[in-house]
């Protein structure tokens, strides 16, 4: 068995946006866990809160950041939890133990997705070039998360602040495509 594991990212070695109005960084090897369960089951909600330290967001299109975990609403019975690199192992064990006997699902998807952070004054324009989602502040603000698409990639996007900064989560196999699309889309904004 290998005792030395080298992690590689599909974004290794790719060029970044050249100008200063858009910045793009990979959030390398972020831990990612999907959680599914019945939000009407109080037992489920309280057991999850015991582990995460925060209430699951039940309002559509919102996320909650607290301590080590950021918990995103994905659907009415589904959440996406982000944590620091390698934090997913302990989280999966803790959630599975806490939810023993409760109809639910906990899956480590850290290697299935890649998260990149897009920020800067022109970040909103870059997003608007490839996505049908309305990124105007009247429709999408800090604290919100949504599934949508960018060009041909299915993404999950959350807004972190009014700079604006966004975390964009995409399937591993689409990461290079999306990254290069962002870099190309950012060119006109300098």
């Amino acid at each position: 068995m290998a005792n030395h594991i080298v992690k590689v990212s599909p974004l290794d070695g790719l060029a970044k946006p050249a100008g200063s109005n858009v910045s793009l960084e990979e959030r390398r090897f972020l831990g990612k866990v999907t959680l599914r369960g019945n939000p009407e089951n109080k037992d489920f909600l309280s057991k999850v809160k015991d582990v995460l330290g925060v209430d699951l967001p039940l309002t559509p299109l919102t996320y909650v950041a607290g301590g080590a975990y950021t918990v995103h609403w994905v659907g009415p019975d589904e959440w996406m939890i982000h944590t620091q690199e390698d934090g997913e192992h302990a989280l999966v064990l803790a959630l599975r133990e806490a939810l023993e006997g409760i109809h639910s699902q906990v899956v480590d998807v850290s290697d299935y997705y890649v998260v990149m952070r897009l920020s800067g004054p022109a970040a909103r324009e870059v997003l608007a070039k490839g996505s049908p989602l309305d990124f105007h502040p009247r429709a999408f603000r800090a604290g919100m998360v949504s599934g949508t698409r960018y060009a041909n990639a299915t993404i999950q996007i959350s807004q972190l602040d009014d700079q604006p900064s966004y975390d964009v989560q995409v399937r591993w196999s689409f990461a290079e495509y999306l990254w290069n699309y962002f870099v190309e889309a950012a060119r006109e904004f300098g």
């Binding site: 559509p60 659907g75 009415p76 589904e78 599934g147 949508t148 698409r149």
Partner: peptide
């Protein structure tokens, strides 16, 4: 089905 969104 909202397959690029909440998948419901």
């Amino acid at each position: 089905v909202h397959d690029h969104g909440c998948r419901r």
